[in-house]
Design a protein around this nucleic acid. Structure first.
Lengths: 188, 188
DNA sequence: AAGCGCATGTAAAAGGTTACATGATTAC
DNA sequence: GTAATCATGTAACCTTTTACATGCGCTT
């Protein structure tokens, strides 16, 4: 339920692959995406960083700062980079917007072809549910139970995702405009 | 990181509050929302159901079915309903689309005023990030790193959510015009 | 005969949450 | 003087994941 726990490890790895970060930096970064990805608690972040060190996936550089408490900058190691690459290359599992966004951030530096594959996978994951949501709810009228609201919310999010995926795919492919079908244009 | 674990308990409670369900029914229902909420594994679902029984929040009715394995229908108890109500009444915490959707499903049967408060809270949670994402990315050009894609994805999702929230709020207020009380104003 | 849908469960290992703990600096 | 920011960490408790386990009926 909680969603692939290991994903968190790769998210950290992906972040420190772009630039060395401290635990605090990572928390700050993720707090900005709290509404989408969620931020880790100290109690999960710091042990996770230690595990990266123990597994040889990262190294640490202690930076003294005048008066402030010293900062520990984590750098990704070669082994870490290798593992991240390996994970990136295997196809992603179905999941929530959170998992999808996490993977985009974690697996930065991918080739356009890899990104296209990732986005296509997400698109195909959404196709079924979006179609079902499309005709299980006639229009915007009627029921205001929590469940009905949730389903309309779900339809809106799915439609927005598919719309974005189409745009992004078009751009990544360099200019092969895809005809937009009605399903992708649905609005709440 | 994993997102409020307890939410799952209330999600189950909310589902069996609408109609009695078996563990298998719950899995089926959630598999349809796998792309948004995620589905629990057997290893988390069945123990969770047992805990509900142990805590007196649910009762079980065993239904024999010809040849098929017997089904266990879980019913919410009075105590379960009370606890669900209590949880529903306290303001929701910030979280991901998944957590938001889970709470909509779990806390079905709320008054329009309560729903308005819930939606306003989400809207205010999204306002800041959406504004930041709006001008940290000029337009749809440029960078195709995973992080840049993720941020544009985030902006799309946030914008869609806010659009839906505005529509839903208009409808909820239209059908039952509510004077603004302290609860709704609190969330700004 | 193989695989899927129905239907429920268990166990070990791993990890997260919550709450606590420290301590200096800056801002109101 | 009180709170917030920076910055890291620990420990008990609980939950999830992953894999295994069962067994019938139906379809290909």
């Amino acid at each position: 339920m909680t969603e692939n726990r290991v994903g968190f490890r790769y998210l950290i790895l992906g972040l420190i692959a772009e630039r060395p970060m401290s635990g605090y930096d990572i928390m700050r970064f993720l707090e900005n995406l709290n509404w989408l990805i969620g931020a880790p608690s100290c109690g999960s972040l710091y042990p996770a960083l230690r595990r990266l060190l123990q597994d040889g996936l990262a190294t640490v550089e202690v930076v003294a700062q005048g008066n402030r408490p010293p900062k520990k900058l984590y750098h990704i190691s070669d082994e870490g980079r290798r593992l991240l690459r390996e994970w990136t290359e295997q196809p992603s599992a179905p999941g929530t917007p959170r998992a999808f966004a996490m993977r985009l951030v974690a697996a930065n530096s991918r080739s356009p072809a890899e990104l296209v594959a990732e986005l296509e996978r997400r698109k195909s994951e959404l196709a079924g549910p979006l179609a079902r949501l499309g005709h299980s709810l006639g229009g915007p009228e009627g029921d205001d139970s929590g469940t009905a609201l949730a389903l309309r919310y779900a339809r809106t999010v799915a439609a927005a995702e598919v719309g974005w995926l189409n745009d992004a795919l078009t751009r990544l492919r360099g200019s092969t405009p895809q005809p937009l079908d009605s399903a992708t244009r649905l609005q709440g």
